[in-house]
Design a protein around this nucleic acid. Structure first.
Lengths: 123, 123, 123, 123
DNA sequence: GTGGTCTAGACCACG
DNA sequence: GTGGTCTAGACCACC
């Protein structure tokens, strides 16, 4: 399902969070579908269950999944996280625009890149 | 000159690097102008000289400054770093575009933001 | 009749208790009216009958319902619970008032909210 | 500084969070003052350092404290949490008002209690 | 079997 | 010495 990169310097649980979050946002994991149990995923990645537990907990706090005791963890509806995600990403977008502006990169160049990316993904 | 944010989780030297790099890119620090000495900046920020030393070393490696033994550290010419910077930022830009695309944010919305940022900065 | 919220962290039987208690206090369920049988409600909510059983037991202990063996569970008269409820809620009210006071929220602001709530509900 | 109540059924870290949060909101702990180290507080309460660690982490996430690696944990400025706190408490206030309304408790009775609490605390 | 909490003990990064 | 991460292993509540 996901894979740990031991070259990555960040804590393991952050990696797990990021990877699962990505799968959810992209839509690979359907809403209300069950995630692997804490223990199974731990065995699968051969890391400690506590680490997975912590990742799941954070993901719940962030609104990406919800937990039902004794049943498992499930993907939350996108109404929970879509707006937060959108806001965060737009903020990042503005930040990087400012930096590009300082490096005197033209609006036209950026618009071209936008066209390129958006047409690529439509395929 | 710069200020440490103790709420920032990253290592101190990274903060120092980022802040100095920013001052150079924006153009606050002129090319060939002298940076504060390792010791002075350390006293100024009341952190360990080793931390500043490490930051300066990294900045030199990245091509933002050059060191003259016994005389100090100086801002390198932009030919050294401008292209690298541009490439890095454009890569970041593309990455975030992909993410925004996945969240189904329209090209038009992004172009509006570009206009906004670029007109604001022209003032 | 009632609905389970699987995002709620509390044990299921607590949810059932709270929801039934609410229906009784609001007056949706009349005094001496029959509650659904343990089994039916269990099937209805697709949870284990034991959970409903436990909820009914607690509600009886609290004086909200009474059980007649072989016949079912019935809503108790409000003389049984009204005063207890009132006392509990007033204690909660005082507790939160203290907290609001510490955050220097003015009496006037609170009185405005009271007016608002009470007029809304009168409609 | 604080005390654990082993009768309390909630997780230990929640108790620690609540108690420290309270000390901060009331103003017993000044802004930027240092909290006990993870290990010291753990010894003091004779519980595991991980438990304290978790409590501190949550408090940081909530904006009540900030952490500086290698230095310790410090009380954050109230601009970080005052508004959040106020919003939360007002929501609780409205919730309980609705319940009191349903129990037909008069506005006047509530206003009297407000007067009582607010005059008591002014002393 | 599921998640949730807690302990004990280890190692690391930072200053 | 400080916080941060991770492991191993235990026990609990809920279903």
């Amino acid at each position: 399902m996901i894979q740990i990169d031991y070259q990555d310097k960040r804590p393991l649980y952050e990696q797990v969070i990021e990877k699962l979050q990505n799968l959810i946002v992209i839509g690979v994991l359907d809403i209300d579908s069950k995630l692997p149990s804490v223990r199974n995923l731990a065995i699968d990645l051969s890391i400690n269950p506590n680490t997975i537990q912590r990742a799941y907990q954070e993901l719940e706090r962030m609104g990406f999944i919800y937990t039902v005791k004794g049943r498992g963890n499930f993907v939350a509806s996108d109404t929970q996280w879509r707006n937060t995600e959108k806001d965060n990403k737009l903020k990042d977008f503005k930040e990087i625009l400012n930096q590009l502006n300082r490096l005197s990169i033209s609006k036209e160049e950026l618009c071209d890149i936008i066209e390129e990316i958006y047409s690529k993904e439509e395929i």
